[in-house]
């Protein structure tokens, strides 16, 4: 394990060796069951995707609190709002393209405008859903949720973080959007890794450039940092799992101390984490920035790793962006 990783986060010892590979959605599935045990008001609503959204365990454990909506995401959002107004804590699940894609208007008015305590779970997010193609690759969901008042947006980086977040959000009286992918991804955090909504975590303390990433790209950022350290480039890596409200303090500190920022996310370049970071940087401490993201185009069918590589959403893409931003520093 690299000595440069911040020890207080107790990251996995095998990150750069052969990290465990587990889908983040498994973390959600286990987390929501724990949330269900902790609070009997937790209910789960699902749109005919119980297994793939990892709600089967909750359904089996709390059958009377699992509500099958059928293929009707708009209805699901409204029903959840009504249940929240009656004291329930509904988790609503579908693929991120539909939830919050198809039911955005309902999320806006039924949920956010009314401060309904609903947890919106966007599964199969990102291009890594792969062979299903562009229709099912949610690459715009952060943009369309980040703009909604009252809504918190969380993009956990792996299995453990998704599990912790799924549990933590039950405890805050607020609508929340959380997105996670379908595929197995490296487990980089551990059970002991602290997680706090709204706090960006500096996993690696570097001085030359900061990579601010979320979701599956946090691992890629750490790998990029490890590779670049051989070239004498010292990367800071921040896991910005809470895209909204964003941790301005950590970002401003990174801008001031490293003088250049690269953002990395499995999402369109417009409206996502990169823009959220840029808003903070431009206002408080302007420094050169580069974005690792989907460059304003739709995806296509392919294997997840092929797609991530093709669109530069990997450590190679991050390294390229780092070198580019360094030239502008």
């Amino acid at each position: 394990m690299s000595n440069s990783l911040n020890k207080k986060f107790h990251l996995a010892g095998n990150i750069f060796d052969s990290p465990d590979q587990v889908p983040a959605r498994n973390g959600y599935g286990e987390g929501v069951v724990q949330a269900g045990y902790a609070d009997e008001n937790v209910v789960v609503l699902c749109c005919d995707l119980t297994e793939s959204t990892r709600n089967a365990k909750f359904k089996e454990t709390f059958p009377e609190r699992f509500i099958e909506i059928g293929i009707a995401e708009q209805n699901m959002a409204g029903i959840a709002a009504g249940m929240a107004f009656s004291g329930k804590i509904p988790y609503i699940s579908s693929y991120a393209t539909f939830n919050p894609g198809r039911n955005w208007d309902q999320i806006r008015i039924s949920i956010c405008y009314s401060m309904a305590n609903v947890k919106i779970m966007g599964a199969h997010a990102g291009i890594s859903v792969g062979p299903d193609g562009a229709t099912h690759q949610a690459m715009e969901d952060i943009a369309i949720t980040r703009c909604l008042p009252n809504l918190k947006v969380i993009v956990p980086c792996d299995y453990w973080e998704t599990k912790k977040a799924a549990i933590a959000i039950a405890g805050i009286e607020s609508p929340v959007y959380m997105r996670f992918g379908r595929e197995k991804i490296p487990v980089i955090t551990t059970e002991k890794t602290p997680f706090q909504i709204g706090r960006a975590d500096t996993y690696r303390d570097g001085q030359d450039v900061t990579v601010i990433a979320c979701g599956s790209l946090v691992y890629e950022a750490l790998v990029a940092a490890e590779k670049l350290s051989g070239d004498g480039i010292d990367l800071r890596v921040i896991n910005c799992h809470t895209v909204k409200p964003i941790d301005e303090k950590s970002i401003i500190k990174a801008a001031k101390e490293t003088g250049a920022i690269v953002t990395a996310e499995e999402h369109q370049v417009h409206g996502g984490l990169g823009n959220a970071v840029a808003e903070v940087v431009a206002k408080n401490s302007p420094v050169p920035m580069e974005y690792v993201a989907m460059m304003d185009r739709f995806g296509e069918s392919g294997e997840p790793n092929e797609l991530m590589h093709k669109f530069g959403l990997d450590s190679k893409g991050i390294i390229k962006a780092v070198k580019k931003v360094l030239r502008r520093k």
């Binding site: 409204g78 709002a81 107004f85």
Partner: peptide, 16 residues
């Protein structure tokens, strides 16, 4: 409930 965009209230009421 809040309202305006049509049909939303019906789903909310159903949830209640």
């Amino acid at each position: 409930a809040s309202g305006g965009p049509l049909a939303q209230g019906l789903s909310i009421a159903a949830g209640m």
